[in-house]
Design a protein around this nucleic acid. Structure first.
Lengths: 329, 329
DNA sequence: GTGAAAGCGCTAACAT
DNA sequence: ATGTTAGCGCTTTCAC
């Protein structure tokens, strides 16, 4: 592996000059610059990023902490983050926290130890409650969930509003016995609040509300329970795509017709939503925008660590499809 | 940030002793070891991995290059790789190549520059044809696709065999006019070969075979074309989950009943396969095993760079579901 | 403009 | 068993 020394030798200059040229510093004559560039080319020299990172105390790596890449919402965000990072010459460490604050802590620390330039984090419940407790001291942007206890760049979607809108949509279409299944993560609680607000506004009461994990099986079990214990339920509101998938399985297994016998709605516009019949009414989260914004903010923060923290709230979009069309009275 | 110096000072020893303790080297008295550990604890000291990596010429980072994390096959593999890496104390850089050899090259080089311990790669078509041309010289394991021109640790599934089996399944169930849609990636060509072998064995000829991109829209377009140009087609064989999704959309749009009017099969046991009606007959790829094996092999290779390369072929599993049940004659 | 030299935080010879 | 020392490859003063 050629080092900066080899380049210096070949170009007949000192290593500091090579460094200057490669870092696009001023005060280098055109002649010397050309010679150095030539040598770099001929030797196919690439600066050792580890050495550079050690000395310069900065790097072109980012950390991305998601709860689980297998959740299509996070898959999409991860992909888009990687794209934006690539455009800016950064690579990204992908870390799955599994909603586990131990793992989150570990990875956060690991990222610091590896001297990443910044971290993009979807915080666990615990971390969101007391962010100061994490005691992180590096450029960080939080997404998907807001945090308490510390001012930090944050990107959210309007969970309450969008849930309100989605619940409203059900109500306006004649559904009367609407149960809800929400994930026990920060977004789940917010969406539940929006849901309940819409219900309260028209004096409806949910036959059942279940809080559960962000997993298909959990959604399946919850829906099963609802449909058995509250057979009059005519619609199920779910707070994310995995729970929605599970709920749909349960509905199908019980032979209930969507939307005639039961309406079904949720979040995230993932591929299967339009593959099933009828296709699913959901709130689409702008994953691309979230990611783009996250990378933008982290870059800004890296450049200017003192910039006052920003909070960006993006809008979810209601996509009405067959799973929630108007009830025949 | 505390450095090894601070620990040494606090413990009243030299930095080399601290280094020894932290690297679990022998020849340290219990007394000193305890004092060092104590100091580490009190200072909440964490070794700077960048410095360690620079000096020791090794790191606890891995590179994982997939063509697109959004493809559920790669999502699953990525997740499992990350899990295994985590267990072994490694972090992983996630890189999307988009089947683009330029991007692949860039990332490979980037990983080298960042001094990763090894790379787990799903090579592009180009790279698979002439792997030696990549000129990589670091621990690497290739998965999903075999490569020519160089001996390298490789993890595959039996694409030809499983495709043969899947095609055979269609044939045995009375399908006679079987078209195929294959992705123009190495696995696509292999699966096509298995498909054609099964067809040839019983003297059948595919009404149409289309090679296309690994995208839902591409599958949709291909299936549309097949169903319009070869209306007698009674089954479509697809080579992966995205194309299958697109094909299913086309079939639905044309109002054809699965499996009565058209059989439909493909690869990858992703979530929606059992969400749709009827559920999909597919070959399940053992993503967990692939990932586990990949991390195992890369660890072995890191420890012993001279070990002769291994090629592991895992078996895909035929999962028969409703989309391909026996035809009524 | 360019070079010499210090040093980022650590590991690994080499002394003792 | 422990300390001293020399770098890993680079950036960055500080001279000239």
């Amino acid at each position: 592996m050629n080092s900066i020394k080899d380049v210096a030798q070949k170009a007949g200059v000192s290593i500091s000059t090579v460094s200057r040229v490669l870092s696009n510093k001023p005060y280098v004559s055109d002649d010397v610059r050309d010679r150095v560039l030539q040598a770099v080319q001929e030797l196919d020299y690439r600066p050792n990023q580890v050495a550079r990172s050690l000395r310069a105390r900065q790097s072109t790596s980012l950390g991305l902490i998601v709860s689980d890449v297998c959740n299509p919402f996070f898959t999409d965000v991860s992909r888009a983050v990687e794209d934006c990072a690539y455009e800016k010459g950064y690579s990204v460490f992908l870390c799955n926290s599994d909603e586990n604050e131990k793992k989150e802590r570990f990875y956060l620390q690991e990222m610091i130890d590896k001297n990443v330039a910044g971290v993009i984090l979807s915080p666990t419940q615990k971390a969101s409650e007391n962010f100061a407790g994490l005691n992180v001291n590096l450029p960080i942007v939080v997404y998907d969930r807001s945090v308490k206890g510390m001012e930090v760049d944050t990107i959210l979607i309007d969970n309450r509003d969008s849930a309100f809108q989605l619940a409203n949509h059900l109500i306006e279409n004649g559904y009367k016995q609407i149960s809800g299944i929400f994930c026990n993560v920060p977004t789940g609680y917010e969406r539940r609040a929006g849901f309940e607000k819409a219900m309260a506004k028209v004096g409806l009461q949910a036959p059942q509300i279940i809080m559960t994990q962000t997993r298909i099986e959990a959604g399946y079990a919850a829906a099963k329970k609802i449909l058995e214990q509250s057979p009059l339920t005519d619609a199920i509101f779910t707070s994310d795509n995995l729970v929605l998938a599970g709920a749909m399985q349960a509905v199908n297994e019980l032979g209930l017709k969507i939307p005639d016998e039961i309406g079904l709605v949720g979040y995230d516009d993932v591929a299967w939503m339009t593959l099933v019949h009828p296709s699913m009414t959901i709130i689409r989260q702008p994953t691309d925008q979230i990611a783009r914004m996250a990378v933008d903010l982290i870059m800004q923060r890296i450049e200017n660590p003192k910039r006052p923290p920003l909070q960006v709230v993006l809008k979810g979009q209601l996509i009405v499809r067959g799973s929630s069309i108007r009830r025949v009275e």
